[in-house]
């Protein structure tokens, strides 16, 4: 690791902190590319991050996630918030190329202060799992609050990305058994807020009822009783903005619930542990949950939580101690 890589990263980082958006754009590219520089940047960001509220917006392709995000951008910006959006879309598995079209639905409504970045999945194993948390930390470190991540809700990758959020909004649409599909895809368990978007279309109240029924079944026995939180179901028409203010309020209420119940600390710790695990996996090709629960592992997790070391440094130290003991 040469010092010039590190100097370049530090210079860009300082300039991004001052509000230079082109520097932030370049830092995000470096994070996506991975490797030494990405690690240095993630480390710099980690030292001063940990405060922003992360909102995940997920749902089937075309359900209206970007249109809804555009509405939220407008409402947050009007309230004086400086927010960032990370819009994740799949790359073509054949060519590695992608058409990233989420901005179309957001640009008109975005405030001057907000920042939108499109990210392709690129199909790299572990790539997205490292790049998304690092991008969030970077947005956090340079002062964006909240950060919204849009991902398509099919398959494991997206559910993993949802794991990076404090508040997960699941978007379903009327008809086609969307609610049932969401259940199958494991989205119901991660949902903190449901939005029945395109409620201008027939079948919206059926979709709502399906969700209520599934919540009754799933939550009465388990989660809801344990946490005292039942995800609200909001009817929205993102074309004209109906319901967006309710979604905003629900996000704020959920954030408040996380804070007052102390769950925010637990979620953030889980997230950092997951990040350290992902990095260990990248280094030695297997997860090391056992190691993280050991005294030594736990002491590294604490150091990361206290912002004394970065997740990458913790992963390296843990791997070094495993190899030393063998």
């Amino acid at each position: 690791m040469t010092s010039s890589i590190s100097d370049a990263a530090t210079t860009l980082f300082q300039s991004a902190v001052k509000g230079e958006r082109r520097s932030l754009g370049k830092l995000l590219t470096a994070i996506e590319r991975g490797g030494d520089q990405a690690e240095i940047i993630a480390g710099l960001a980690h030292q001063v991050s940990g405060n922003t509220h992360v909102v995940g917006i997920t749902g089937a392709p075309g359900s209206g996630k970007s249109t809804l995000t555009g509405r939220l951008l407008k409402l947050f910006s009007e309230a004086g918030d400086k927010l960032a959006v990370l819009a994740v879309d799949p790359s073509s598995p054949l060519t590695g190329g992608a058409i990233l079209g989420d901005r179309i639905r957001m640009d008109d409504l975005a405030g001057e202060e907000s920042f939108i970045r499109s990210m392709a999945t690129r199909g790299h194993s572990g790539g997205l799992a490292l790049a998304v948390p690092a991008a969030i930390q970077l947005f956090d470190a340079v002062g964006y609050e909240p950060v919204i991540i849009e991902t398509v809700g099919v398959g494991q990758v997206e559910v993993d990305v949802a794991g990076a959020a404090d508040t997960t909004v699941v978007v379903v649409t009327p008809g086609m058994g969307d609610a049932v599909q969401a259940n199958k895809a494991g989205l119901l368990e991660v949902a903190d807020i449901f939005v029945v978007n395109k409620s201008d279309r027939p079948g919206a109240s059926d979709a709502r009822r399906d969700l209520e029924l599934m919540l009754d079944l799933g939550h009465v026995s388990g989660l809801e009783q344990m946490t005292g939180y039942r995800p609200p179901i909001i009817m929205a028409n993102s074309l004209d903005g109906t319901g967006a203010d309710e979604v905003l309020d629900a996000i704020k209420s959920h954030a408040e619930f996380l804070r007052s119940s102390g769950k925010i600390e637990i979620r953030r710790k889980e997230r950092l542990v997951m990040e350290i695990q992902n990095r260990i996996e990248l280094l030695i090709g297997s997860t090391a949950s056992v190691t993280l629960e050991s005294d030594l592992g736990a002491s590294f997790v604490t150091k990361v939580l206290d912002r004394k070391i970065s997740p990458a440094e913790a992963a390296k130290s843990i791997v070094a101690s495993i190899t030393a003991n063998e």
Binding site: G97, A98, I99, L100
Partner: peptide, 11 residues
């Protein structure tokens, strides 16, 4: 896209 590039489409 088919040539492997990422296209950010603004419309």
């Amino acid at each position: 896209r088919d040539a492997g590039m990422e296209v950010i489409y603004l419309g």
